[in-house]
Design a protein around this nucleic acid. Sequence first.
DNA 1: ATAGCTCGCTTCGAATTCGAAGCAAATAGA
DNA 2: TCTATTTGCTTCGAATTCGAAGCGAGCTAT
Lengths: 165, 165
Amino acid sequence: MTDHTPLPPDQLGAYLVLSEVSSLIEHAVEQQLRDAGLTVPQFQILARLSGAPATQLRMTDLADGLVYSRSGLTYQAGQLEKAGLVTRTPGAVDERSVTVTLTPAGRAALDRAMPGHVEVVRRLLLDALTPDDVAAIADILGRVRDRMRAAPPRSAAARPPRRRR
Amino acid sequence: MTDHTPLPPDQLGAYLVLSEVSSLIEHAVEQQLRDAGLTVPQFQILARLSGAPATQLRMTDLADGLVYSRSGLTYQAGQLEKAGLVTRTPGAVDERSVTVTLTPAGRAALDRAMPGHVEVVRRLLLDALTPDDVAAIADILGRVRDRMRAAPPRSAAARPPRRRR
DNA sequence: ATAGCTCGCTTCGAATTCGAAGCAAATAGA
DNA sequence: TCTATTTGCTTCGAATTCGAAGCGAGCTAT
Protein backbone atom coordinates (compact mmCIF):
# COMPACT_ATOMS: atom_id res chain seq x y z
CA MET A 1 0.00 0.00 0.00
CA THR A 2 2.94 2.25 0.50
CA ASP A 3 4.21 1.76 -2.98
CA HIS A 4 3.97 4.63 -5.45
CA THR A 5 7.38 3.76 -6.90
CA PRO A 6 9.93 5.64 -4.80
CA LEU A 7 12.06 8.28 -6.43
CA PRO A 8 15.26 7.28 -8.16
CA PRO A 9 18.17 8.44 -5.99
CA ASP A 10 19.43 10.96 -8.51
CA GLN A 11 16.06 12.65 -8.80
CA LEU A 12 15.68 12.66 -5.05
CA GLY A 13 19.14 14.15 -4.77
CA ALA A 14 18.35 16.93 -7.21
CA TYR A 15 15.24 17.81 -5.24
CA LEU A 16 17.04 17.75 -1.92
CA VAL A 17 19.98 19.83 -3.02
CA LEU A 18 17.63 22.38 -4.51
CA SER A 19 15.73 22.69 -1.25
CA GLU A 20 18.86 22.80 0.80
CA VAL A 21 20.58 25.49 -1.21
CA SER A 22 17.59 27.76 -1.31
CA SER A 23 16.95 27.29 2.40
CA LEU A 24 20.51 28.21 3.22
CA ILE A 25 20.41 31.26 0.99
CA GLU A 26 17.11 32.37 2.41
CA HIS A 27 18.34 32.12 5.96
CA ALA A 28 21.49 34.02 5.19
CA VAL A 29 19.47 36.71 3.47
CA GLU A 30 17.13 36.85 6.43
CA GLN A 31 20.03 37.43 8.72
CA GLN A 32 21.47 40.16 6.58
CA LEU A 33 18.18 41.96 6.17
CA ARG A 34 17.67 41.89 9.92
CA ASP A 35 20.72 44.12 10.24
CA ALA A 36 19.14 46.50 7.77
CA GLY A 37 15.93 46.54 9.81
CA LEU A 38 13.76 44.69 7.34
CA THR A 39 12.23 41.24 7.21
CA VAL A 40 12.29 39.13 4.08
CA PRO A 41 8.64 39.69 3.19
CA GLN A 42 9.03 43.41 3.78
CA PHE A 43 12.05 43.52 1.54
CA GLN A 44 10.23 41.61 -1.16
CA ILE A 45 7.30 43.96 -1.03
CA LEU A 46 9.49 47.03 -1.23
CA ALA A 47 11.51 45.51 -4.05
CA ARG A 48 8.43 44.78 -6.08
CA LEU A 49 7.05 48.23 -5.52
CA SER A 50 10.31 49.82 -6.55
CA GLY A 51 10.09 48.09 -9.89
CA ALA A 52 6.46 48.93 -10.52
CA PRO A 53 5.19 51.86 -12.57
CA ALA A 54 4.78 54.88 -10.25
CA THR A 55 6.21 52.59 -7.55
CA GLN A 56 2.75 51.44 -6.64
CA LEU A 57 0.71 48.28 -6.85
CA ARG A 58 -2.59 46.96 -5.63
CA MET A 59 -2.54 44.44 -2.83
CA THR A 60 -3.64 41.73 -5.21
CA ASP A 61 -0.81 42.42 -7.61
CA LEU A 62 1.59 42.18 -4.73
CA ALA A 63 0.06 38.91 -3.61
CA ASP A 64 0.62 37.26 -6.96
CA GLY A 65 4.28 36.70 -7.45
CA LEU A 66 4.97 36.85 -3.77
CA VAL A 67 4.33 33.43 -2.39
CA TYR A 68 2.36 34.66 0.54
CA SER A 69 -0.91 34.39 2.31
CA ARG A 70 -3.36 37.20 1.85
CA SER A 71 -3.60 37.98 5.50
CA GLY A 72 0.15 37.89 5.90
CA LEU A 73 0.42 40.49 3.20
CA THR A 74 -2.11 42.69 4.96
CA TYR A 75 -0.11 42.37 8.13
CA GLN A 76 3.20 43.27 6.53
CA ALA A 77 1.69 46.13 4.57
CA GLY A 78 0.46 47.43 7.90
CA GLN A 79 3.92 47.17 9.39
CA LEU A 80 5.47 48.96 6.45
CA GLU A 81 2.86 51.67 6.64
CA LYS A 82 3.46 52.10 10.35
CA ALA A 83 7.15 52.47 9.60
CA GLY A 84 6.38 55.07 6.97
CA LEU A 85 7.93 53.09 4.14
CA VAL A 86 4.70 52.75 2.26
CA THR A 87 1.28 54.36 2.02
CA ARG A 88 -2.05 52.64 1.57
CA THR A 89 -4.77 54.49 -0.27
CA PRO A 90 -8.16 53.35 -1.48
CA GLY A 91 -8.03 52.21 -5.08
CA ALA A 92 -8.73 54.86 -7.67
CA VAL A 93 -11.16 52.99 -9.88
CA ASP A 94 -12.25 50.12 -7.68
CA GLU A 95 -13.31 51.26 -4.25
CA ARG A 96 -12.52 47.83 -2.81
CA SER A 97 -8.91 47.68 -3.81
CA VAL A 98 -6.02 49.23 -1.95
CA THR A 99 -3.08 50.87 -3.66
CA VAL A 100 0.24 50.51 -1.93
CA THR A 101 2.82 53.15 -2.78
CA LEU A 102 6.50 53.32 -1.96
CA THR A 103 7.45 56.45 -0.02
CA PRO A 104 10.83 58.18 -0.27
CA ALA A 105 11.64 56.66 3.11
CA GLY A 106 10.74 53.28 1.69
CA ARG A 107 13.01 53.84 -1.26
CA ALA A 108 15.77 54.85 1.12
CA ALA A 109 15.30 51.74 3.25
CA LEU A 110 15.52 49.60 0.17
CA ASP A 111 18.65 51.38 -1.01
CA ARG A 112 20.14 50.85 2.40
CA ALA A 113 19.38 47.13 2.44
CA MET A 114 20.20 46.31 -1.14
CA PRO A 115 24.00 46.38 -1.16
CA GLY A 116 24.23 43.91 1.70
CA HIS A 117 21.61 41.77 0.08
CA VAL A 118 23.48 41.63 -3.19
CA GLU A 119 26.67 40.91 -1.35
CA VAL A 120 25.17 37.89 0.40
CA VAL A 121 23.65 36.46 -2.74
CA ARG A 122 26.87 36.94 -4.60
CA ARG A 123 29.03 35.37 -1.95
CA LEU A 124 26.77 32.40 -1.31
CA LEU A 125 25.48 31.65 -4.76
CA LEU A 126 26.74 33.63 -7.69
CA ASP A 127 30.44 33.44 -7.00
CA ALA A 128 30.13 29.67 -7.18
CA LEU A 129 28.55 29.73 -10.61
CA THR A 130 30.21 29.89 -14.00
CA PRO A 131 28.41 31.78 -16.74
CA ASP A 132 27.34 28.40 -18.11
CA ASP A 133 25.93 27.47 -14.75
CA VAL A 134 23.95 30.68 -14.63
CA ALA A 135 22.53 29.99 -18.05
CA ALA A 136 21.70 26.40 -17.17
CA ILE A 137 19.91 27.37 -13.96
CA ALA A 138 17.93 30.06 -15.71
CA ASP A 139 16.96 27.72 -18.51
CA ILE A 140 16.05 24.66 -16.48
CA LEU A 141 14.33 26.34 -13.58
CA GLY A 142 12.70 28.81 -15.90
CA ARG A 143 10.99 25.92 -17.63
CA VAL A 144 9.99 24.46 -14.28
CA ARG A 145 8.53 27.76 -13.17
CA ASP A 146 6.52 28.24 -16.31
CA ARG A 147 5.15 24.76 -15.93
CA MET A 148 4.18 25.39 -12.32
CA ARG A 149 2.62 28.74 -13.03
CA ALA A 150 0.58 27.19 -15.79
CA ALA A 151 -1.20 24.90 -13.36
CA PRO A 152 -2.50 27.40 -10.82
CA PRO A 153 -0.47 27.10 -7.67
CA ARG A 154 -2.28 28.44 -4.65
CA SER A 155 -4.62 31.37 -5.03
CA ALA A 156 -6.66 29.77 -7.74
CA ALA A 157 -8.70 26.67 -7.08
CA ALA A 158 -8.80 27.98 -3.56
CA ARG A 159 -11.92 29.70 -2.37
CA PRO A 160 -14.28 26.78 -2.39
CA PRO A 161 -17.78 27.78 -3.53
CA ARG A 162 -18.61 29.40 -0.22
CA ARG A 163 -22.15 28.26 0.32
CA ARG A 164 -24.42 30.68 2.08
CA ARG A 165 -25.80 29.42 5.33
CA MET B 1 27.12 55.46 -1.85
CA THR B 2 24.63 52.91 -2.99
CA ASP B 3 26.97 51.45 -5.47
CA HIS B 4 28.29 47.94 -4.94
CA THR B 5 27.97 47.20 -8.64
CA PRO B 6 24.45 45.87 -9.16
CA LEU B 7 23.98 42.32 -10.35
CA PRO B 8 24.06 41.55 -14.05
CA PRO B 9 20.50 40.74 -15.13
CA ASP B 10 21.24 37.13 -15.96
CA GLN B 11 22.72 36.46 -12.56
CA LEU B 12 19.84 38.21 -10.88
CA GLY B 13 17.46 36.14 -12.96
CA ALA B 14 19.11 32.90 -11.95
CA TYR B 15 18.84 33.85 -8.31
CA LEU B 16 15.22 34.88 -8.60
CA VAL B 17 14.08 31.84 -10.50
CA LEU B 18 15.81 29.62 -7.98
CA SER B 19 14.01 31.32 -5.10
CA GLU B 20 10.72 31.29 -6.88
CA VAL B 21 10.78 27.64 -7.82
CA SER B 22 11.76 26.46 -4.40
CA SER B 23 9.17 28.66 -2.75
CA LEU B 24 6.46 27.29 -4.96
CA ILE B 25 7.52 23.73 -4.33
CA GLU B 26 7.72 24.28 -0.62
CA HIS B 27 4.25 25.74 -0.47
CA ALA B 28 2.78 22.93 -2.48
CA VAL B 29 4.50 20.41 -0.25
CA GLU B 30 3.23 22.22 2.80
CA GLN B 31 -0.28 21.98 1.49
CA GLN B 32 0.00 18.30 0.76
CA LEU B 33 1.52 17.46 4.12
CA ARG B 34 -1.27 19.32 5.84
CA ASP B 35 -3.68 16.75 4.46
CA ALA B 36 -1.48 14.04 5.92
CA GLY B 37 -1.56 15.76 9.30
CA LEU B 38 2.08 16.82 9.36
CA THR B 39 3.87 20.12 9.06
CA VAL B 40 6.98 20.51 6.95
CA PRO B 41 9.38 20.61 9.87
CA GLN B 42 7.73 17.59 11.41
CA PHE B 43 8.00 15.69 8.17
CA GLN B 44 11.65 16.61 7.84
CA ILE B 45 12.39 15.43 11.35
CA LEU B 46 10.61 12.14 10.81
CA ALA B 47 12.32 11.65 7.48
CA ARG B 48 15.75 12.18 8.94
CA LEU B 49 15.04 9.85 11.81
CA SER B 50 13.81 7.16 9.47
CA GLY B 51 17.13 7.21 7.68
CA ALA B 52 19.25 7.17 10.81
CA PRO B 53 20.78 4.09 12.41
CA ALA B 54 18.27 2.66 14.91
CA THR B 55 15.95 5.43 13.70
CA GLN B 56 17.27 7.73 16.37
CA LEU B 57 19.32 10.89 16.56
CA ARG B 58 20.33 13.43 19.13
CA MET B 59 18.69 16.85 18.99
CA THR B 60 21.93 18.38 17.82
CA ASP B 61 22.28 15.96 14.94
CA LEU B 62 18.77 16.82 13.90
CA ALA B 63 19.53 20.51 14.12
CA ASP B 64 22.44 20.29 11.73
CA GLY B 65 21.14 19.60 8.27
CA LEU B 66 17.72 20.91 9.10
CA VAL B 67 17.83 24.63 8.60
CA TYR B 68 16.11 25.40 11.82
CA SER B 69 16.37 27.28 15.03
CA ARG B 70 17.24 25.35 18.12
CA SER B 71 14.15 26.35 19.98
CA GLY B 72 11.96 25.60 17.00
CA LEU B 73 13.33 22.11 16.97
CA THR B 74 12.57 21.69 20.65
CA TYR B 75 9.04 22.82 20.01
CA GLN B 76 8.45 20.47 17.12
CA ALA B 77 10.05 17.56 18.91
CA GLY B 78 7.58 18.26 21.71
CA GLN B 79 4.68 18.21 19.29
CA LEU B 80 5.83 14.98 17.74
CA GLU B 81 6.25 13.41 21.16
CA LYS B 82 2.79 14.55 22.19
CA ALA B 83 1.45 12.93 19.05
CA GLY B 84 3.29 9.72 19.89
CA LEU B 85 5.36 9.74 16.71
CA VAL B 86 8.62 10.06 18.53
CA THR B 87 10.11 9.48 21.97
CA ARG B 88 12.62 11.63 23.77
CA THR B 89 14.99 9.95 26.17
CA PRO B 90 18.01 11.29 28.03
CA GLY B 91 21.18 10.62 26.14
CA ALA B 92 22.99 7.41 26.99
CA VAL B 93 26.53 8.67 27.30
CA ASP B 94 26.02 12.40 27.71
CA GLU B 95 23.45 13.22 30.32
CA ARG B 96 22.73 16.57 28.71
CA SER B 97 21.79 15.32 25.31
CA VAL B 98 18.39 14.04 24.27
CA THR B 99 17.90 11.10 21.96
CA VAL B 100 14.92 11.30 19.69
CA THR B 101 13.59 7.98 18.44
CA LEU B 102 11.02 7.22 15.79
CA THR B 103 8.10 5.16 17.09
CA PRO B 104 6.14 2.66 15.00
CA ALA B 105 3.37 5.24 14.87
CA GLY B 106 5.92 7.76 13.61
CA ARG B 107 7.02 5.37 10.92
CA ALA B 108 3.42 4.82 9.97
CA ALA B 109 2.75 8.54 9.76
CA LEU B 110 5.74 8.95 7.50
CA ASP B 111 4.64 6.07 5.30
CA ARG B 112 1.23 7.65 5.07
CA ALA B 113 2.58 11.05 4.06
CA MET B 114 5.34 9.95 1.75
CA PRO B 115 3.40 8.88 -1.36
CA GLY B 116 1.61 12.19 -1.61
CA HIS B 117 4.84 14.00 -0.98
CA VAL B 118 6.61 12.17 -3.77
CA GLU B 119 3.67 12.76 -6.04
CA VAL B 120 3.82 16.51 -5.52
CA VAL B 121 7.55 16.75 -6.03
CA ARG B 122 7.32 14.64 -9.14
CA ARG B 123 4.49 16.58 -10.62
CA LEU B 124 5.89 20.01 -9.87
CA LEU B 125 9.57 19.47 -10.40
CA LEU B 126 10.81 16.14 -11.60
CA ASP B 127 8.42 15.62 -14.47
CA ALA B 128 9.72 18.86 -15.95
CA LEU B 129 13.32 17.72 -15.86
CA THR B 130 15.22 15.63 -18.38
CA PRO B 131 17.88 13.27 -17.05
CA ASP B 132 20.44 15.83 -18.17
CA ASP B 133 18.64 18.51 -16.21
CA VAL B 134 18.69 16.35 -13.12
CA ALA B 135 22.40 15.80 -13.50
CA ALA B 136 23.04 19.48 -14.09
CA ILE B 137 21.08 20.56 -11.04
CA ALA B 138 22.79 18.02 -8.84
CA ASP B 139 26.19 19.03 -10.10
CA ILE B 140 25.82 22.79 -9.98
CA LEU B 141 23.85 23.10 -6.78
CA GLY B 142 25.92 20.38 -5.18
CA ARG B 143 28.96 22.55 -5.69
CA VAL B 144 27.13 25.55 -4.30
CA ARG B 145 26.05 23.61 -1.25
CA ASP B 146 29.54 22.36 -0.51
CA ARG B 147 30.84 25.86 -0.80
CA MET B 148 28.20 27.18 1.57
CA ARG B 149 28.66 24.42 4.08
CA ALA B 150 32.38 25.07 4.07
CA ALA B 151 31.93 28.60 5.39
CA PRO B 152 29.82 27.94 8.49
CA PRO B 153 26.25 29.00 7.80
CA ARG B 154 24.32 29.58 10.97
CA SER B 155 24.95 27.44 13.99
CA ALA B 156 28.65 28.08 13.98
CA ALA B 157 29.99 31.57 14.56
CA ALA B 158 26.79 32.02 16.48
CA ARG B 159 26.90 32.00 20.23
CA PRO B 160 28.97 35.06 20.87
CA PRO B 161 31.41 34.64 23.77
CA ARG B 162 28.73 34.91 26.40
CA ARG B 163 30.50 36.90 29.08
CA ARG B 164 29.61 36.14 32.64
CA ARG B 165 28.56 39.14 34.60
C1' DA C 1 -33.36 48.13 -10.04
C1' DT C 2 -32.52 44.45 -7.24
C1' DA C 3 -31.29 39.96 -5.49
C1' DG C 4 -27.38 37.02 -5.32
C1' DC C 5 -22.93 36.17 -6.36
C1' DT C 6 -17.97 37.37 -6.74
C1' DC C 7 -13.95 40.00 -5.49
C1' DG C 8 -10.53 42.65 -2.61
C1' DC C 9 -9.14 43.21 1.57
C1' DT C 10 -9.13 42.97 6.75
C1' DT C 11 -9.99 40.89 11.25
C1' DC C 12 -9.71 37.07 14.23
C1' DG C 13 -7.79 33.33 17.07
C1' DA C 14 -4.62 29.70 17.21
C1' DA C 15 -0.26 27.90 16.07
C1' DT C 16 4.45 28.46 15.05
C1' DT C 17 8.56 31.01 14.70
C1' DC C 18 12.73 33.23 16.48
C1' DG C 19 16.57 34.96 19.55
C1' DA C 20 17.84 35.76 24.20
C1' DA C 21 18.23 34.08 28.55
C1' DG C 22 18.53 30.15 31.64
C1' DC C 23 19.99 25.64 33.51
C1' DA C 24 22.54 21.73 34.31
C1' DA C 25 26.02 18.33 32.71
C1' DA C 26 30.61 17.95 30.81
C1' DT C 27 35.15 19.48 30.10
C1' DA C 28 39.36 22.19 30.48
C1' DG C 29 42.80 24.69 33.10
C1' DA C 30 45.08 25.99 37.20
C1' DT D 1 40.49 19.16 42.65
C1' DC D 2 38.05 23.16 42.03
C1' DT D 3 36.76 26.91 39.17
C1' DA D 4 35.54 28.70 34.66
C1' DT D 5 34.02 27.72 30.23
C1' DT D 6 31.64 25.26 26.90
C1' DT D 7 27.92 22.42 25.35
C1' DG D 8 23.04 20.58 24.81
C1' DC D 9 18.77 21.60 25.39
C1' DT D 10 14.57 24.13 27.19
C1' DT D 11 11.88 28.15 28.59
C1' DC D 12 10.35 32.65 27.75
C1' DG D 13 8.06 36.60 25.51
C1' DA D 14 7.31 38.93 21.35
C1' DA D 15 6.49 38.79 16.59
C1' DT D 16 4.79 36.58 12.61
C1' DT D 17 2.32 33.14 10.25
C1' DC D 18 -1.86 30.93 8.50
C1' DG D 19 -6.80 29.79 7.23
C1' DA D 20 -11.46 30.85 8.22
C1' DA D 21 -14.76 34.10 8.70
C1' DG D 22 -16.40 38.76 7.88
C1' DC D 23 -17.45 43.06 5.34
C1' DG D 24 -18.62 46.01 1.87
C1' DA D 25 -18.11 47.28 -3.08
C1' DG D 26 -18.98 45.74 -7.76
C1' DC D 27 -21.19 42.59 -11.20
C1' DT D 28 -24.79 40.00 -13.49
C1' DA D 29 -28.89 38.41 -14.81
C1' DT D 30 -33.43 38.97 -14.39
